[in-house]
Amino acid sequence: MYLTRFRLNTARTGARRLLSSPQSMHAAVMSSYPELLPTAAPVPATAGPRVLWRVDRNASAEVLLFLVGPSQPDLTHLVEQAGWPAAAASGTAGWQTYRYAPFLEGLDKGGTWNFRLTANPVHSVRNADGAPTKRTAHLNARHQVRWLLERQEPCGFRILTKPEERRHTEHRDEHQVVVRDQCGMDFGKQGAKGRVTIKTVTYDGRLEVTDPDALRRVLTGGLGKAKAYGCGLMTLAPVG
């Protein structure tokens, strides 16, 4: 497995086009892996490692694309469309790729990490008796955090709680996690009728590893729905 980081040049039209279209970004990401054919069927959720991606908008001029995949990607086309081609031609590749396996293998039970996750928190509702259930997005931060808390045990981590003096009990604000960068996407799916509607949120927080193997599966296989549209990728960073 490999983790890759690419900074988008938001002054370029190509970068803005990719950032405005999750379908275009998905196509560009998948084109970064020469061994993956464009006609390849979607990877089943149970098939193990897959290509995951996430866009982090840290500032107007600092927009980063993260990729996790089973092989090293070639992002030359992204550099040409949405990066700094002249800088890349002078010897800077334009992206950084790291072997992910050593990091994953080093995860130990009880270790604590800062984490970031962009996800599509949804639940199933039934509007009338006997009617089929419909997948619906969670719209407020309390329900979005609860969605994540419900998944922490089977996913091999525990979100840490805040010290008593830092909690706001009136808001039930006890966990070390915040929800930010909520984004609604609505677009037509290429080659199919109807529209795709997705609500994405980004979580920043701190966790403790409870089951390293389960957490490794999340880090390489993703968490939740809409993985083709930039959801599901969790990354860890050292505390402090």
Rank of each mutant, 00 (worst) to 15 (best):
N120E: 11
S90Q: 04
G83K: 04
L67F: 03
Y98M: 11
A93I: 02
V125S: 15
P85F: 03
A101H: 09
W95F: 02
D74M: 03
E80Y: 00
V63A: 03
R57S: 12
L107M: 05
N114D: 15
D74W: 00
V68F: 05
E62T: 15
E80S: 04
V125Q: 15
A119I: 05
S124L: 14
Y98W: 12
F66P: 04
L104A: 07
V79P: 07
T76S: 13
G106S: 14
A87Y: 04
N114L: 15
T118R: 14
V125M: 15
A88I: 02
T118K: 11
F66C: 05
T97H: 02
H77L: 08
E80C: 02
V122D: 13
G94L: 01
R126D: 09
E105Q: 13
A93N: 04
V63M: 04
Q96P: 03
A82I: 03
R99A: 12
A93K: 05
A93L: 06
A61E: 11
W95A: 02
N114A: 13
F66S: 07
G69P: 06
P85I: 00
A88F: 00
Y100V: 02
L75Y: 03
A119K: 01
P70R: 10
H77P: 03
L67V: 05
A87M: 12
G83W: 00
W95Y: 02
G106I: 05
V68D: 02
Q81S: 11
R126W: 07
G94S: 03
D74K: 00
E80R: 06
E105I: 06
V63G: 04
E62V: 14
L65W: 04
E105Y: 09
S60H: 10
L64N: 11
G110V: 06
N58T: 14
T92V: 06
W84H: 03
E80N: 07
P85N: 01
L64M: 12
R57H: 11
W113E: 08
H77N: 11
T92M: 06
L104Q: 07
G94C: 02
S90I: 04
R99T: 10
D56P: 08
